[in-house]
Design a protein around this nucleic acid. Structure first.
Length: 426
RNA sequence: GUGGAUGUAGCUCAGCUGGUAGAGCUCCGGAUUGUGGAUCCGGCGGCCGUGGGUUCAAGUCCCAUCAUCCACCCCA
């Protein structure tokens, strides 16, 4: 037996680093006034068909769609924005003070061939600011992303920035682009000719060298924005300049969802191999109304937990696992009861305490205490039972003292110091 | 969906032109009749991915299949 293709287990040793990523993100989201939201693992299939767009690859071939026993078509969520917007509409959040700022840490599912940094189930951290067209929000989201990467020490990140325009300028641009592609269609690769018909903007994703050469001369949306979009974009770049956030304007940046308008952005990490996109997002001013809500501008981003972790590991960043503070050594069956009692009392005071369940030799137990990182070993054997006092060994100093069973846990707690709130189960 | 590489102990791998498995790490024990992090010694642990085929004999050759990894497509 093994985990399904593209999935993986997150083992205890993997957790500390991921928790650190989550912790830094949580801190930064809170500092900017974002509240956490959790949405269902699956949604009505139509949510993604309408939200993400039926011309996107995700909807066309990557969704985990199934029928439940009530005959409904459901889909494991492939991205985080549409569900959050659905929740915004469903709960009437447009009546709250705007914008409504939400963040999430959720599992995403896409039926793709696994690869370095790509899985069929993965986790994304993301944020959505719904209910304002203020370019300051676009900049805020972008800065939160780099804030997370910097706080964690993600190496070699770079930002690409573009604008998708809006209904005032994109249609006219797409026509110009289509005309250009039609002219040069004889020299384009098959994929590009297909894209030219289905979704012309996608041709910029092509990595074919000859196509790239042709497309270098193609008109770019970023050079053909209407006044409103141009002003908005200038405000965003102005703010980024003020923050000292470097970026590269890239008219070929086309993101995979159909809902984007105006600002789009993507962070890349050079350490990551082929799947180097570490996070991305943009503005989606039409999505709320498309999903049945009032006309409401919004923007957001998503960033991949696994890709952040891979990037951190490539830079040698790690997080220390939690350690045990006290190890109770039980020497001989006669000491079992007394050992269990002391263990329970220690834990009751909020001390991380462990003992031996494997029948290890005294040496083996000491070794285990050391492995677990215990600061103290509480040794209980025949001698201690006779004296009514345990031997407490300081594992760092190698010094031992005899401490009466009565009050032992408190004594050790005092040595460990710090505030301990736990009385949960003593 | 397409292409390439790889599948031998829990982990990382060795095993030459076919002769029925080995190292390091981990784990357990011993050297220290009740004491760790160093060293030394010993032990546990493998239907050599799976199924066929060739052969007196297959981890080793052939075919198929599955899985993993990397890349394409696309994305986090």
């Amino acid at each position: 037996m093994q985990a399904p293709k593209g999935t993986y287990d997150i083992l205890p040793a993997d957790q500390p680093l991921r928790e650190r990523v989550l912790g830094e993100a949580r801190r930064i989201f809170a500092s900017a006034g974002y509240g956490r939201i959790s949405t269902p693992t699956f949604e009505d299939t139509s949510l993604f068909e309408r939200g993400v767009g039926s011309s996107s690859d995700i909807v066309r071939k990557e969704m985990y769609t199934f029928q439940d026993k009530g005959g409904r078509s459901l889909t494991l969520k492939p991205e985080g924005t549409a569900p959050v917007v659905r929740a915004y509409v469903q709960h009437g959040m447009h009546k709250l003070p705007q914008p409504v700022k939400l963040w999430y840490h959720e599992r995403m599912f896409r039926f793709e061939r696994p690869q370095a940094g790509r899985f069929r189930e993965h986790y994304q951290l993301g944020a959505e600011a719904i209910g304002s067209a203020d370019p300051a929000l676009d900049a805020e989201l972008i800065m939160m992303m780099s804030g997370i990467y910097e706080a964690l020490g993600v190496p070699d990140v770079a930002l690409r920035l573009s604008s998708m325009g809006d209904a005032g300028c994109r249609p006219a641009y797409v026509e110009r682009l289509s005309a250009f592609l039609h002219q040069s269609s004889g020299e384009l690769c098959g994929d590009c000719r297909e894209r030219a018909l289905l979704n012309p903007l996608r041709v910029f994703d092509c990595k074919n060298e000859s196509c790239e050469a042709i497309l270098a001369d193609a008109p770019k949306l970023i050079d053909n924005l209407c006044d409103g979009c141009q002003q908005h974009f200038d405000s965003v770049t102005g703010l980024l300049d003020m923050f000292g956030r470097s970026y590269r304007l890239d008219g070929t940046l086309v993101r995979g969802f159909d809902y984007y308008t105006r600002t789009t952005f993507e962070y890349e990490c050079a350490r990551l191999g082929a799947q180097k996109g570490i996070g991305g997002g943009g503005r989606y001013d039409n999505l709320v109304s498309e999903l049945g809500g009032p006309a409401t501008p919004a923007a957001g981003f998503g960033t991949g937990m696994e890709r952040i972790v891979l990037a951190l590991e490539s830079a040698g960043v790690s997080a220390a696992p939690a350690t045990i503070e006290v190890f109770v050594m039980i020497l001989g069956d006669a000491a079992r009861a007394a050992g269990s009692q002391q263990l329970h009392r220690l834990r009751g005071l909020g001390i991380a305490a462990e003992t031996d369940y494997a029948g290890r030799s005294p040496k083996g137990q000491m070794k285990q205490a050391n492995r677990l990182g215990a600061r103290y070993a509480v040794i209980i054997g025949d001698e201690e039972l006779a004296a009514g006092a345990a031997t407490v060994r300081d594992m760092q100093l190698g010094e031992q003292e005899s401490v009466a069973f009565d009050g032992l846990a408190r004594h050790v707690a005092g040595r460990l110091g710090g505030n301990r709130g736990g009385t949960a189960w003593a």
